[in-house]
Design a protein around this nucleic acid. Structure first.
Length: 478
RNA sequence: CGGGGUGUAGCGCAGCCGGUAGCGCGCUUGGUUCGGGACCAAGAGGCCGGGAGUUCAAGUCUCCCCACUCCGACCA
């Protein structure tokens, strides 16, 4: 296009998807790079999205009895090392503190990569009786993992998240908790972020280090790559035993509680960008949009226009929406492009002609759909349009997911499908890690999950030809 | 950690065979505009990613770092 873009230019996604993604992160003012490699600054607009996500999720967690806590950021090495599998899993990416002031520490301290160990240590001291169970904790914090390659939101050395940690009297209760929280995530993705997910179980190769079982919600991006949305883990009593967390049971015997953890991160912002964004920029689902409605006064120097715009703002704010009027003297076109870049779901235009006619114009970000409405019906119409945006985003994302799931019956076929079409490749799988390895080496795909919703595609493993009972999803993942 | 690319004003870039830094946009001020990326005028803004070296002289040449970025490997 010869049209010169005066708002920050972004690369078209068809030209270079990765560059398009990075452009949006920077130019929609979500993040900025910090001075240490792999660390990012969440700027006000990006942080506001995270705050909205937090508020919604936090309320859901509390509905099911979870309480927020704050754990220390540093973990003594000896404590971290008590559970072997977890240590081995995280060892390559732990950052350490070795000095306190000018003194060498007697024991080095790990920046938390995750807090299972801290929670267990704490519980080992405060838990006494079955009457105190379950303990349903959650914390909002950042963690540090020394990743080698980093990308905003998708993989950074520090990221913000919530980590839920719970202990229960019985294995059944803990398993139910794991499932409940996975469903909580799935609902959040589908109903709030408008991103359809595939729920399933991770293979042993892909599960959380130290977990007995890891469950996941997997989503698909516009480039047909997979993104792990959030995970929920069941630990059995493995950590309890490692950290000597005990309680006196109903039978007056000392017992180990059963544990879960579940987490979701600022990576979800990356998911939103790549699930809904387009060549004009970010597209935000209304529930998490910092600005849900942008009001643009047209010809605002003319008498009455600015007042009319402000009146609309007041009415929409009173109706519970997050609204802004752009009173800057940038041109109409500039403002339109600017708020499209920032993904504001709904635009309201009001000018002299509208005022005269007692109307205003509503424009959806998701599909550009314009509606002229009577001023009297503003609140209701705005909410309807926002609902249409939400619905439209979900439907488009669902179509993207549904149209990019392919069945394959051999590694070669899987590879070809991935190369030509991308997306989730589903096959039967025998359960052997060697077959996962083979798929990785030959087709470049990792297992995403064993979906709960199973299909019977055949009787033999696509990788080795041996009998197989499970269907598994493969994909190229972020 | 391997391979490629890029680092010059906030952003995008130019700067040839070495001679001491420029353009567009943005920003500031004033004015005119205003229904899809306006215009005029006057300004501000640079240790040319960092460090060594070669040279009378280094964005420019050499070496070493660093950062960003892409592709792998790795990564709950």
């Amino acid at each position: 296009m010869a049209k010169e873009k005066k708002v920050e230019q972004i690369t078209d996604m068809e030209v270079d998807f990765a560059q398009w993604y990075t452009d949006i992160c920077r130019k929609a003012e979500l993040v900025e790079y910090a001075s240490v490699k792999g660390f990012t600054i969440l700027r006000p607009y990006g942080y506001a999205i995270w705050e909205n996500m937090q508020q919604i999720m936090d309320a859901e967690f509390k509905k099911t009895g979870h309480e927020n806590v704050a754990m220390p950021v540093l973990i003594p090495e000896s404590l971290l090392k008590k559970e072997g599998e977890l240590v081995n899993g995280f060892a390559p990416e732990v950052a350490w503190v070795t000095m306190g002031g000018s003194e060498q520490l007697e024991e080095r301290l790990a920046f938390r990569p995750t807090s299972e160990t801290m929670f267990c240590d704490h519980w080992s001291r405060v838990l006494h009786s079955y009457r105190e169970l379950p303990m349903l904790y959650n914390q909002w914090c950042s963690v540090i993992r020394w990743e080698k390659t980093t990308r905003p939101f998708l993989r950074s050395r520090e990221f913000w998240w919530q980590e839920g940690h719970t202990i229960h009297e019985t294995a059944e209760e803990a398993q139910a908790e794991t499932e409940q929280q996975l469903n909580c995530y799935a609902d959040f993705f589908e109903k709030v972020l408008a991103i359809p997910v595939v729920r399933g179980r991770k293979t042993d190769k892909e599960k959380f280090a130290g977990a007995e079982a890891t469950y996941t919600v997997e989503c698909m991006m516009k480039d047909h790559k997979a993104l792990q949305g959030a995970t929920s883990h069941y630990f059995g009593d493995k950590f309890s035993r490692a950290y000597d967390v005990t309680f006196t049971g109903r039978d007056n015997k000392l017992q180990y509680p059963f544990q879960t953890s579940w987490g979701s991160t600022t990576r979800m912002i990356g998911a939103v960008i790549m699930a809904h964004g387009d060549n004009n920029g970010l597209v935000l689902p209304p529930p998490i949009a910092p600005i849900q409605v942008i009001i643009l006064p047209v010809a605002m120097h003319k008498s009455g226009v600015l007042e009319a715009a402000r009146a609309l703002r007041e009415r929409l704010q009173n109706a519970g929406l997050r609204v802004k009027v752009d009173e800057s003297d940038n041109s109409m076109g500039w403002k339109c492009a600017q708020y499209e870049m920032k993904g504001v779901p709904l635009r309201v235009e009001i000018g002299p002609r509208d005022i005269e006619a007692g109307q205003c114009v509503l424009v959806r970000r998701s599909d550009g759909g314009k509606t002229v409405i009577r001023l009297e019906e503003l609140e209701q119409a705005a909410k309807e349009q926002l609902a249409l945006v939400q619905q439209g985003l979900y439907e488009k994302a669902k179509l993207n997911l549904d149209e990019h799931c392919y069945a394959a019956f051999s590694v070669e076929e899987a590879k070809k499908l991935q190369e030509e079409k991308g997306g989730f490749i589903k096959t039967m799988w025998c359960g052997d890690v060697a077959c996962e390895q083979k798929m990785k080496e030959e087709a470049g795909m990792s297992s995403r999950c064993i979906p709960f919703k199973q299909e019977h595609l055949g009787d033999v493993c696509a990788c080795c030809g041996r009998p197989a009972e499970k269907m598994i999803f493969w994909g190229v993942a972020y």
